[in-house]
Structures are given as C-alpha cells and as structure tokens.
Design a protein around this nucleic acid. Structure first.
Lengths: 134, 134
DNA sequence: CCATTCAGATTACAAACGTAATCGTAATGC
DNA sequence: GCATTACGATTACGTTTGTAATCTGAATGG
C-alpha cells in the first residue's frame, strides 16, 4: 500500500474523515477489532451499502491512518487509531469555528431557539454548569 | 443558464452548500447586495482566491438557489436567498445528529471538557437557561 | 491435486469540490 | 467607430467522495 510520508510518530493529524467513512468509524468505535464482514454486517444494513463499498472505505481509512490493521489468518482485523473523543472534539470545534467565530455560546443559543434542546438536555447542561462552577 | 428542474416554489431545501461556497455566503450575509467584484474584495484576500474562483462559486450558489441575482446595468448584484440563521441552524443540527445522536447535551459536555468554553460563554449560557426557564 | 470460495487489492466511474483559464459581449475611452 | 476593458458564461481539470465491479491469490472441501 505504498504508504507515503511515513515517519508520522505522534501523528494525530489524521486527514479529514468523510461522512461515509465516519459511519465505518462509528461501527469500529462501538466495538473493535472487527473484520470487514463484521463491519459490513452493521453498516451495510444501516446505509444500504454492499461489501465492496465497505472494503473501499476501510482501505481509505487505513490509508488516512485512522484505522490500524492486524492480520488474523487470511483476513484483517480493523481497529481505530484515532479516538472518538478526538474526532468528535475536532469536528465540533471546526463547526463552532466556522459558524460562530469560535464562540460556543451562539451555538448553544441557536440550538435553544430551534427547540433542538430537550428538557433532558437542559437539565444535563445545568448540571454540567454547576459542576464547572465548583 | 439552462436552469433545470425549475418549479421549486417553496424550495427552502437549498442543496448543500460547500465550505468554499459558505465563505462567499458569509460575505453576502454581512452585506448585500454586492457585485462579484465586491465579494471578491472581501474573500479573495481572506482565502487567497482569484476573481474567476469567486465567479464560479457565485454561479454555483445561484444554481443551488442560495443566492438571487438582480441585474444592475451590465453586472449583477447578488443577494442571499437563504437566511444565515437557517443555514447555521441546519448545519448545527446536522452535526449534533451525526456526532451526538441528536442530543445537544453531549456536544455541550464536549466543548466544556475541552475548554472550548470561555467564562463569557458560560455566563451567557447560564443566562439563556434562566431565560428559558421563565 | 483441483475447483470453489472468500479475503483483500486494484480499478472504475460519476458527482461534487476547489480552483481557475478562456470566451463572448457590452460598455467606454478616445 | 474601434480598441480596450470589465463583466458574466462556458469550459477545464485535478481531487475527493460515494458506490461498486473485477481481479488475484490463499484456504478449503472433496
């Protein structure tokens, strides 16, 4: 797989994961390692994909250094290299940056206005705020 | 310009705006209407684009029904059709959906943990919560 | 041993994107 | 009036993404 670059020791960089790829990552974050077939069992149904599609996505994710493979007999086991928290944090920050000039409050205000916040959310957030105040 | 489809009367759907296109939208949300040259004056510097690039993005945005044009002598004035609030709300919800299963609290928790929240943000959010409680 | 099967690898291909050069034409300066 | 400009329109082209078919080689059943 002719990996270019190499020598990415502390490489948390992990080039942009696309939306389809993200679905595959989710499956592996939920449980890992998994074989391609296992991943497909999860996502192919959810998204109406076929096996080859999943294979492609897995390969691309390996190329992007988001997944690691470990041989298991004649097939591979895939495991996430980048943590979900990391990815989620990155994406969240990106959005807040892009849409709200880096300030989180407007995002919150927006979600609040559009009733995208459930009672539960509100309670939870209040709780978090209390925690932070401590 | 052979606009295909047509007949999108109540079309608030506005097909997905890409990131580059978004930059153009921001310029026009900030002030409108503007000519292509004016938009370029703003974004070409910010993003290191050239005039033709801006023209292309403007055209695509018109095709996507995100912008309206009104002739002004020999050139066009561009005005957003979709409101910023709408776009921002849409994108926010998309992210929350994709990354947090539609729940906003975890997003908030994430931002909190990663110190992506300033004191100001927190104060503001507390205020908003108080408002909502009313 | 040989055919079948089952992995991953390679190749494909259209749509969307990012970025831009070029074309055609209307205005404008002499 | 004609050359130059200043627009928008058209065309271009490499990359990424979504989605998949095909190829190749190893394992496995007989």
């Amino acid at each position: 797989m002719a990996d270019e670059g190499g020598s990415n020791a502390g490489d948390a960089g992990a080039e942009r994961i696309s939306e389809a790829e993200h679905a595959v990552m989710e499956a592996l974050w939920a449980r890992s390692p998994q074989t391609a077939a296992e991943v497909c069992a999860t996502v192919c149904e959810e998204r109406g994909w076929s096996m080859p599609t999943v294979k492609t996505l897995l390969s691309r994710l390996v190329a992007k250094r988001a997944l690691a493979t470990q041989p298991d007999g004649r097939r591979f086991l895939y495991t996430p290299i980048i943590a979900r928290r990391e990815y989620v944090g990155h994406e969240s920050r990106r959005l807040v940056e892009r849409l709200f000039g880096g300030r989180a409050a407007p995002l919150f205000a927006h979600l609040a206005e559009n009733e995208a916040l459930t009672e539960e959310d509100i309670a939870e957030i209040e709780h978090l705020l209390k925690e932070m105040r401590k």
